[in-house]
Structure formats: C-alpha cells, structure tokens
Computed example of a mutant assay.
Amino acid sequence: MAHYLADNPTPEAVAALPGLTLLEFGVDWCPHCQGAQALLAQFLSARPGLHHLALEDGKGRPLGRVYRVKLWPSFILLRNGAEIARAVRPQGLAELESLMRGA
C-alpha cells in the first residue's frame, strides 16, 4: 500500500523534475487508492527507471489543485515537468499502460 507524502513539493519543484515522473494523487484511507496499488506495483515493476511520487491530496494541498485533480487516485505522467498523460481511477493495467504511449 502506498504511503502518500503529506509534504508535497511546490509546483515549481515539480515543473523542474527531469525526465519521466509519475505523480500519484490520493490518500491512504481511500478505498479506490488502496484498490489501485496492485496495478500500480505491476506497472512500476516493468519500469524501474520511472520516478514515482505518491502525493497526499485534499484540503490544504494546493498541488492537486494545480493539476485539477478531482478524483482519487489520479496518475499524471510528466516529461521534464510537463503533463503528457493522465489516468483517473484506473480499473485495469491497460489504463496505466496507456500513459506511456506519448512517452
């Protein structure tokens, strides 16, 4: 199970991330977030070089608002700090795999 970082980076720090980064927005107690962890683990195991940040979202967490996150979990793939793909509440591995099409 993911442990979401309560101390989110600033939008500027995220925009400065080099290469490919997968942002995961959610909270530890969310059943949808918990349910997506097995898919995420499978997806990440095939991509050892992909940087992954599990970020706590909700009230007082402005980073999720910057990315217009409305549902958890939301997965946003960045290339050099810019969004290139997004998957919201994926139900299968294919939805996460589709993130990589534009990478």
Results as ranks from 00 to 15, higher is better:
S98N: 14
A2S: 13
H51V: 14
K59E: 15
A82L: 12
A38K: 07
A46H: 02
A82V: 15
L22P: 01
N80L: 04
A54T: 07
A36L: 02
L78P: 06
D28G: 03
G35Y: 01
S98R: 11
F25L: 03
R47L: 00
G92H: 09
P48H: 02
R47N: 04
T10S: 14
F43S: 02
S45E: 11
L5V: 14
L96R: 01
I76H: 01
Y67Q: 12
L5I: 13
G81Q: 05
L53S: 03
G60D: 05
W29H: 06
L20A: 10
L77V: 09
D57S: 14
L71T: 13
L99E: 00
L17Y: 06
P73R: 01
R61Q: 15
A15H: 05
Q37H: 10
A46F: 01
L78E: 07
E56N: 08
T21Q: 00
F75Q: 04
L78H: 01
L78K: 00
R101C: 09
A85I: 05
L99K: 00
Y4K: 06
E24W: 02
E95H: 03
L78A: 02
Q42S: 12
D57L: 06
R86S: 07
R86I: 10
I76S: 04
D7G: 10
A38G: 10
H51L: 11
G60K: 01
G26Y: 06
V66Q: 13
I84W: 03
L71N: 13
L96Y: 04
V14A: 03
L20D: 11
L93P: 13
A15Q: 10
P48D: 04
F25Q: 04
L78Y: 00
M100N: 07
W29R: 03
C33N: 04
I76K: 02
A41R: 01
E56T: 10
Y67A: 07
W29F: 08
A13S: 09
R101Y: 08
P48V: 10
L23N: 04
S98Y: 06
D57E: 13
A94S: 13
H51P: 07
L40K: 05
M1Y: 10
A36Y: 01
K59I: 15
A94Y: 05
N80M: 02
G58K: 02
P11M: 01
R65Q: 15
P31W: 02
M1T: 14
W72T: 14
L93Q: 13
